[in-house]
Write a protein that binds this DNA or RNA. Structure first.
Lengths: 248, 248
DNA sequence: GCCCTTGTTTCTGTATACAGCGTATGGTCT
DNA sequence: AGACCATACGCTGTATACAGAAACAAGGGC
C-alpha cells in the first residue's frame, strides 16, 4: 500500500493510531475540522486518509456524509482470522503447485531456520516477542511471495490490515500466558511442515496446514478473552465489543 | 462500497468505464487536468475517485506520484478466480456451520428456484444472458448474506471488484459458445448442491462445492482464450496481456 | 555525434474559500 | 407543559489557487 505524500501519510498513520488506541469512541463521527487541528494537516490530505481508512474497513461511511469509527464484535474477529486462513492457505497451495526454481525456496528455508534458532535459544516472553513477530511475519511474507501473484498478495495485504487479523496479532497474548507457550512449538511445526509440503509440491497439504496455522490465532483469542488483562493485549481492543463485557 | 457524493460517484463510474473499455492505455499515466476536462468534474472528486480505484486494484500508484492503468496477465486472472473461490467457499462453509433459522434459507431457496425456472424455459443466449447474470448474482449474494459476516462480505466485495473476477464474468462467453452450454447445467447443479449442503449443515461439502463452482470460471476462461472473438468478450479484456496475442 | 546541463513546462500535493444541507437549539403557539 | 417551527450553526462536498518537484526539451560542451 505504497503512499508517497508526506502529509497524507502522516494523517493516515496518526489517525490509525488514534483509532486503534481507542482515543476515538466507536461509532463516533470523525469531524474533519477538529482533526485538522489535532493532526496538524489540512483537510485535503486528511480526507484522503479518511477515504483510505474507509476502504481499509476501519471506518464506516455515514449515510449523510463523513465517517464513523467502526466497531467489531467477537464474530468479526473469528471471521477475519478465517479469511486470512483461507487466503494464506490458497497462497501456500499456489506456491506448492507452481513451477519453482530450487533457489526460490531459499528465503523460506532461511525464515524457518531463523525461527528455529530463536525458539531454541530461549522461551518467548513479553520482552523479546517483537523479534519473534518479525521473523514470523517474514515467514508469512515468503509464502505469499512464493505464490507469485500480486492479485493474491494485495488481497491478503488488505485482509491483514484489520489490526486483529494479522499473523502476529495474538503473539503478545501467547507470550503473556504460560499455558500458551506450547503454541510456539506447534506454530513452528506448522511452519516446518508448510515448507516441507511446498518443497514436495503437495498443494492440498500446504493449504490445510496453513489454514490450521491460522486457527492458532483463534485459539489464542479464545484464551485471551478469558480475562480482562489479556483482553487488553488484543490489538485494537478498544474497537471490540466483547460479549460479556466486564466493566471497563 | 457506499458512495454518497454525486461528483465523486460520477468520476468513479466514468473512470472505471474508461479504463475497462480500454480507452486508456495500460501503463498510461492518468494526468488529472485532462481528465478534469473529459469527465466534467473538478480535481477534488477526481482525486478521490483515483484513490478509490487505486485501492480497488485497477490503478497502480506511480512512485513519483499519480496513478497508471494497471495491466493484468493470464495468471492474474486465474489467481483472481481462485481468490474468489476461496472466499466464497469460506462463506458457504460459515453459512452451513452457523445457527440458522429455517426462514433464513428462504431467499437462497428462492434464488435457486428462480434459476431453475429460467433454465427450464429456454437455453441461455447472448440475448437473455443478463437475466441469468442477475439471478446468478442473487444466488451468490444470498450465500454471502447467510455467512453473516460483514468482514467477509467486504473482503469478497473487494475481490470481485476486479472486472474479470466477478461471479458472472464469463457468462457472456458461456452464452456465446455452443460447447459451453453444458456449463449452465453444471453450474446449476452446483447451486442446488450448495443449498442442500447448507441446509444439511455440511460445511466442508458446501465449501468444496463453492470452490469447484468458481473453477467453472476458469474453464470458461480457458475456452474463451482459444479465439480472438470470445477473448474480446472477457470483461476488461483491454487490460489483459494475453500470452500468445493475435494481432489486435 | 553524443552526453550532460540548464531552463521551461506541466504535473501532483496541499491549502483554503465557498456553497448547500443536515442538525441542533431556542422560542412560540396550542 | 409539550410539541412544532424557524433560525442559526456546523458540517461535508466541491472548486480553485499556489508551491514544489519532476519530466521534458533545447542548447552547449566534450
Amino acid at each position: 500500500m505504497e503512499i508517497s505524500s508526506p502529509q497524507t501519510l502522516r494523517a493516515l498513520l496518526q489517525l490509525r493510531e488514534l483509532i486503534l488506541s481507542g482515543e476515538l469512541e466507536v461509532g463516533e463521527r470523525l469531524s474533519e475540522l477538529p482533526l485538522v487541528d489535532r493532526l496538524g494537516v489540512s483537510r485535503t490530505p486528511l480526507r484522503a486518509a479518511l477515504v483510505r481508512l474507509g476502504e481499509e474497513g476501519l471506518l464506516d461511511p455515514i449515510p449523510t456524509g463523513g465517517y464513523a469509527v467502526r466497531g467489531f464484535d467477537e464474530r468479526d474477529l473469528y471471521a477475519a482470522i478465517e479469511v486470512r486462513g483461507a487466503l494464506e492457505g490458497l497462497a501456500a497451495r499456489l506456491a506448492a503447485e507452481r513451477e519453482l526454481a530450487p533457489a526460490d525456496l531459499a528465503a523460506l528455508r532461511e525464515a524457518v531456520r531463523s525461527l528455529d534458532v530463536l525458539l531454541d535459544r530461549s522461551p518467548i516472553t513479553v520482552r523479546n516477542f517483537d523479534e519473534y513477530v518479525k521473523r514470523n511475519e517474514l515467514f508469512h511474507a515468503c509464502v505469499i511471495e512464493l505464490a507469485g501473484s500480486s492479485v493474491l498478495a494485495r488481497q491478503i495485504e488488505r485482509a491483514v490490515s484489520l489490526p486483529f487479523a494479522s499473523a502476529s496479532a495474538f503473539v503478545m497474548v501467547q507470550a503473556a500466558l504460560p499455558e500458551a507457550q506450547d503454541m510456539f512449538t506447534i506454530a513452528q511445526d506448522h511452519h516446518r511442515c508448510v515448507l516441507q509440503a511446498i518443497e514436495a509440491r503437495e498443494g492440498a497439504r500446504a493449504e490445510a496446514l496453513m489454514r490450521e496455522h491460522a486457527r492458532l490465532a483463534r485459539r489464542n483469542l479464545e484464551l485471551a478473552l478469558r480475562n480482562q488483562r489479556t483482553r487488553d493485549l488484543v490489538p485494537g481492543s478498544g474497537l471490540i465489543r466483547f460479549r460479556a463485557n466486564a466493566a471497563v
